[in-house]
C-alpha cells in the first residue's frame, strides 16, 4: 500500500517535472522542421523560473477568483494524474477514486476557473478569448464523452486501467477499425483542447486571432507561471491518456519493484517523444483554421467518434 502511494507520488512528480520539458521539446522540434534553430529544450523551465521571481500585478477590478484560478488550473492535471496510468499498468492507490469521466470533469473544472478569471480581470481580450475557447470546448466536450463511452462500451468499464488492457488483448482488437477511429478522434480533440494548430496557434501573439492565449494575458508573476505550467501539464496528461490508454499501452511497469517503475519513465518518455514528433509534424504542415471553420473540424472528429461507437459490435 505504501509503495503504491509512493508510486502515485512518483507519477505526479513525473508529470510535474517533465511537462515543461515536453513543451520545450515540441517547440524545438517544430522550429527544427521549419529549419530554424529554435530555443533550448530547457527554455520553459527558465521561463517558469523567471516568472516565479517576478512581482504580480493584480487588476483593481479583480476578485478572489482571479487569484484562486491559477491554483485550480495548476492542480487539476495533477489530480487527474492520480487517476490515469502514467507509469504503471496496474491501478495505484487512488485509481478507483474516479474514472475517465471524472478526469475529464476535473480538467474542465480547471479550465472553468481560468475562464472565470479571464472575465474577472476586466481586460477586453479576456472575455473574447473565453467565449471562443468556450465555443471550442462546448463542441469538444461531447466528443470526449463519446470517445470515452465507446471505449468503455468495449471494455465494460470507465476506469482507464481496465480500458487500456482492452486493446492489447489481441492483435485483431488493436487493429480493429473502431480502435483506429477512436485514436483519430481523440487526437483531433486533443489538438483542439490544448489550443494547437489547426484550431489555435499557440505561438501566435496577435490578440484578435488568439483563442487560448488571450485568456492568460492578464496574469503576471507567480499566477502566470502557474497557468503556464498547468497548461503544459494538461497537454502532457492528455497526450499520456492517448498513449497509455488508447493507442499504445506498452512499456508501462507491470511489476511492483521500484526499479521497474523507474524503468518505465524512460520508456514512456520515448513514446512521448514519438508522439511529439507526430504533433510537431501536424503543427508545421497545417494552417490555422478560420474561427468558423473550427466547427467543421470538430464535426469530423465527432462523426469519427460516433462511427467508432457504431462499428464496435460489428468489428470487435
Amino acid at each position: 500500500m505504501a509503495l503504491h502511494i509512493a508510486f502515485n507520488i512518483l507519477q505526479m512528480l513525473t508529470v510535474l517535472l517533465l511537462a515543461p520539458l515536453v513543451q520545450g521539446v515540441l517547440v524545438r522540434l517544430e522550429e527544427r522542421i521549419q529549419s530554424k534553430r529554435g530555443p533550448s529544450v530547457w527554455q520553459p523551465y527558465f521561463d517558469l523560473w523567471k516568472l516565479f521571481h517576478k512581482d504580480e500585478v493584480l487588476s483593481t477590478q479583480g476578485t478572489w477568483i482571479f487569484r484562486f484560478a491559477p491554483y485550480a488550473y495548476f492542480a487539476a492535471p495533477l489530480l487527474v494524474t492520480m487517476l490515469i496510468p502514467v507509469l504503471t499498468a496496474y491501478p495505484l492507490f487512488m485509481a478507483f477514486m474516479g474514472d475517465m469521466v471524472a478526469a475529464g470533469f476535473i480538467l474542465s473544472g480547471g479550465a472553468f476557473f481560468l475562464a472565470l478569471a479571464a472575465i474577472d480581470a476586466g481586460n477586453v481580450y479576456g472575455p473574447m478569448g473565453t467565449s471562443r475557447s468556450r465555443m471550442v470546448s462546448s463542441l469538444v466536450e461531447p466528443i470526449f464523452m463519446i470517445v470515452f463511452f465507446s471505449v468503455s462500451f468495449a471494455a465494460n468499464s470507465t476506469i482507464p486501467y481496465v480500458v487500456q488492457a482492452q486493446w492489447v488483448q489481441s492483435a485483431a482488437r488493436f487493429f480493429s477499425p473502431t480502435h483506429v477511429l477512436l485514436v483519430a478522434a481523440f487526437l483531433m480533440i486533443i489538438l483542439a483542447e490544448t489550443g494547437r494548430i489547426p484550431v489555435d496557434n499557440p505561438s501566435g501573439h496577435f490578440e484578435l486571432a488568439m483563442i487560448d492565449e488571450s485568456k492568460v494575458l492578464e496574469f503576471s508573476g507567480r499566477s502566470a507561471a502557474l497557468v503556464k505550467w498547468g497548461g503544459q501539464m494538461k497537454s502532457m496528461v492528455l497526450d499520456l491518456v492517448l498513449l497509455n490508454v488508447l493507442l499504445a499501452p506498452w512499456g508501462l511497469a507491470t511489476g511492483t519493484q521500484v526499479s521497474a517503475v523507474l524503468l518505465a519513465i524512460p520508456l514512456v518518455a520515448v513514446k512521448l517523444a514519438a508522439m511529439l514528433l507526430v504533433l510537431a509534424f501536424i503543427e508545421t504542415s497545417f494552417a490555422k483554421l478560420r474561427l468558423f471553420r473550427i466547427e467543421d473540424y470538430l464535426t469530423v472528429a465527432f462523426v469519427v467518434a460516433v462511427v467508432a461507437m457504431f462499428l464496435q459490435p460489428v468489428t470487435l
Binding site: A171, A172, F174, F175, S176, P177, T178, H179, V180, L181, A184, V300, V303, V304, V307, L311, T315
Partner: peptide, 18 residues
C-alpha cells in the same frame, strides 16, 4: 496479421471518406 492489417486499412479508409 494480414487480416488485422486489412482491418486497420479499413478503419483508415472510412476515416478518409469523412
Amino acid at each position: 496479421l494480414l487480416v488485422d492489417l486489412d482491418a486497420l486499412v479499413g478503419g483508415l479508409f472510412i476515416l478518409s471518406a469523412f
